[in-house]
Nucleic acid binder design. Structure first.
Lengths: 152, 152
DNA sequence: TTCAGTGCAAAAACTTTGCAGGAGG
DNA sequence: CCTCCTGCAAAGTTTTTGCACTGAA
């Protein structure tokens, strides 16, 4: 179950923007925050379906968008892929290394990046909304590269 | 017309990978490198069509992919948008600020980011392919925000 | 001669939208 | 009771694929 704090963040955002408080929105909030790591709208929809939570695909798409708007989730677009989400609230800022061979995503923290991002916005008199840093790599250790294992 | 150097980079890549050297591929190379800034596959296709260069949409998609693979172009995915490209070869590494209101993209250089990226890869024993740093902002100066101007 | 590339249209993949019925404020 | 939300299906958007033909090596 989602913490009261997060639930209240969501409720606050909905009220502030004259959006209604509905059961479906809470079901999706719960389901999304229970996922560890990255997921996309359709994966979440299928998973909820499998657990007999009946919400429509359209509602899932719309609700994930709302949850990004109020910074409960972060929205990612790794090269060419579909839109993916991950929990943002309660997490430290972090970045992603993506193996272009096996698509494995590894997270890392790097506080200096946050400083750079703040500095850039301050220097340009801009209000920050978000930032991403992605490093595309090839796993050096091919034996552990998921794609290598699958192909060989 | 594209420089011989870039043309040779492309030819080298094609030969190395047993891809054939075709006129369509050179037409697309030329057209893509003549665009200043960011573009997507369909924009390029339409533009070529308008200039009576007859290549198919499918060939444009495929060729842009080849040109990314050999680092003549960089492939971008700004939040949720379609895949966009820009010339990489002959340019210094640079990053992007994207206004979430007007979608204006501003480029900036920041050598420290390259150092961080190299360090991360070295520390993790990974071979770098590429990296991106995107800062999503709201234009502070609303008078100059494209979207503001359009809506008001 | 061989096989990859091309163009076309069709399909796939992902996301948004229109509409009728239902429920929150 | 007035809207906004939901579910569904349909449509929209972007990209990929199958196939017959063409042309590079």
């Amino acid at each position: 179950m989602v913490s009261e704090e997060i639930k209240n963040t969501f409720i606050g955002y909905l009220k502030l923007n004259s959006h209604r408080i509905t059961n479906e929105r809470f079901l999706i909030l719960d389901a999304a925050l229970n996922i560890k790591g990255h997921f996309d709208a359709d994966e979440l929809y299928i998973q909820m379906k499998n657990e007999y939570m009946n919400v429509s695909r359209a509602t899932v798409y719309k609700t994930l968008e709302l949850m990004s708007e109020c910074s409960i989730l972060t929205k990612h677009n790794f090269k060419g892929d579909r839109t993916r989400y991950e929990t943002k609230i309660g997490r430290k800022p972090h970045y992603h290394m993506i193996c272009v061979t096996c698509n494995k995503i590894t997270e890392f923290e790097y506080p200096l990046i946050e400083e750079i991002q703040s500095k850039i916005c301050a220097d340009n008199n801009l209000k920050t909304v978000d930032h991403t840093f992605q490093v595309f790599v090839k796993c050096e250790d091919f034996m552990n590269c998921e794609n290598y294992k699958r192909l060989n």
